[in-house]
Design a protein around this nucleic acid. Structure first.
Lengths: 164, 164, 164, 164
DNA sequence: GATGAATGAGTTTTCATTCAT
DNA sequence: AATGAATGAAAACTCATTCAT
């Protein structure tokens, strides 16, 4: 709050309550994340590539906007139904770019089709989210590049050993 | 607090502070999760199976002990260094059974060896955690069985389309 | 607290804790006591008189600001070293005007020189403090004027019978 | 409480309440102080000497039984009238030996008669109390012997400079 | 609009007392 | 009688919100 250089009282000129502030933070952050992903997609046309760059963007975004990341994992647990629904909607919003590019990749025959994009996307998002969280907690233990690699390896290739 | 049927004062007879209470909840929960996983392992000897049952256990556990799950994702963000370190240690503790079974599976040639168990485990845990979280939030939208399947499919097989 | 006409929360807007509040009360009271004594001294130049008016001031002050008096005798016993030292410093501060006027009186040959002002002052303060305390407790038993007289008689003349 | 080697619960077998515990502590301490003073008097018959040894005893006693000393200065401020009166009575009790020996010394012509023993005693007690308190606080700054000397000098001789 | 002191409802913590063992 | 876990009323403290400037 003070980090933004505004006084406590000022916040209440812009937001009805603390909850609303968080929600707007979540909204703005989500919009920003989604638009960043979409911007990236302007420069990439191949489905496989598009999927990759979106994943990278998501990881970078969560690693960068820590406060947003925190609110994302924390405010979900609110009990107040009024807000809960909105938080859930935002979550869905956040998954859209992932759903889109996964869908595209399926159409192109790159990604398996036996799991719906709506199911793959949250899993991928979970992978991204938790890898980033783990990296945030244990920054010193392993390089940033590792998390990107691990996410890609698992999501695309899985972990079963291949014959050749 | 009152849900446990004890008076407010009683809690402070056992715990120094609210923070300590949370930490102990986290500790106990972790121990419980780990020991449940280990118990399961007593009945399964094949590496592939062992990995599967542990994943199932983790998902069921987080879906069941919601309060533990919440504290797990929420209390990580504490700034107080005194607690932060302990929370991180518990996280590591929680990963151990996963690391073990992944390691075993690698030795048996079931799982690819080019990513260390220490890197695979948190990714798998992230997958589990977020799938469970997603399911907790959108219970009505899809069946419980789906989350188990999605986790397994992605973690083991990945999502790239196969030739045959 | 409520006597000052402020809400509970307001107090914590100004003071970190209850202990800090007490300390500031002690500080402010001490400053006030010392400055009252010094103001009095502006109007008196003769050493003997100066000593007398300071004594009177101290007695009146402690009789008047009962809360300060109470905190003075009560909060000394804190164990917490952080505060203990500060309380001791304030005590020393409180003695300064007494030490000054005793020193002056010694220089003028009015007061015996074989006991240092630093030793006489706390004894005089003890006399003042306890007489005032006794009077506070047994208000009805004897007139206020008595305590001033007793302090002066003992401190100046002592109690040994004189020849003539 | 634990210092006495008894559990919290046990205390309530012996005392009705915490306040009663303090009162009994005060009572017992007072009795002990008074009886110690009286015992001392058995061995001294000269009035001047008797006064001196009683003073010495009081100082030693308060320096030794710190907890008693603390309760003495602290519990006076209770508002509850029921206890207040009893505390005041104990205070009077405590003064009795001093009143007695001061009275004797007056009869023998050793001590001035123009102030009643009832007024001199609390002043002397204040001198003793505060010198001991000061010594307790600033132990390191001056030797124990000083406080006895200062009390005697002031109480007996006063501080005015003498002609010869 | 901006500010931060003031507020008080709510939360956390303490502590004198009780009570089952 | 002795114990210490349990209690809950009260004290200490926090924090989202208000409001006068």
């Amino acid at each position: 709050m003070q980090r933004a250089g505004v006084a406590k009282g000022t916040v209440y000129h812009h937001f009805e309550s603390k909850e609303e502030l968080f929600l707007v933070l979540l909204q703005t952050g989500t919009e920003y994340l989604v638009s960043e992903a979409q911007e990236e997609l302007l420069y990439h046309s191949e489905a496989a590539e598009r999927l990759q760059v979106v994943i990278e963007r998501y990881i970078r975004f969560l690693g960068k906007y820590k406060e947003f990341f925190k609110v994302l994992l924390t405010e979900i647990w609110w009990v107040d139904d009024r807000w809960k629904e909105q938080v859930q909607n935002l979550r869905q919003e956040m998954l859209k770019p992932l759903i889109t590019v996964i869908g595209e990749a399926q159409e192109r025959g790159i990604i398996r089709k036996d799991v719906a994009p709506e199911n793959l996307a949250p899993a991928l998002f979970g992978l991204i989210t938790h890898e980033t969280l783990h990296w945030t907690l244990f920054k010193d233990a392993f390089p940033y590049a590792d998390i990107l690699r691990t996410v890609k390896v698992i999501f695309f290739e899985g972990t079963l050993a291949r014959k050749n």
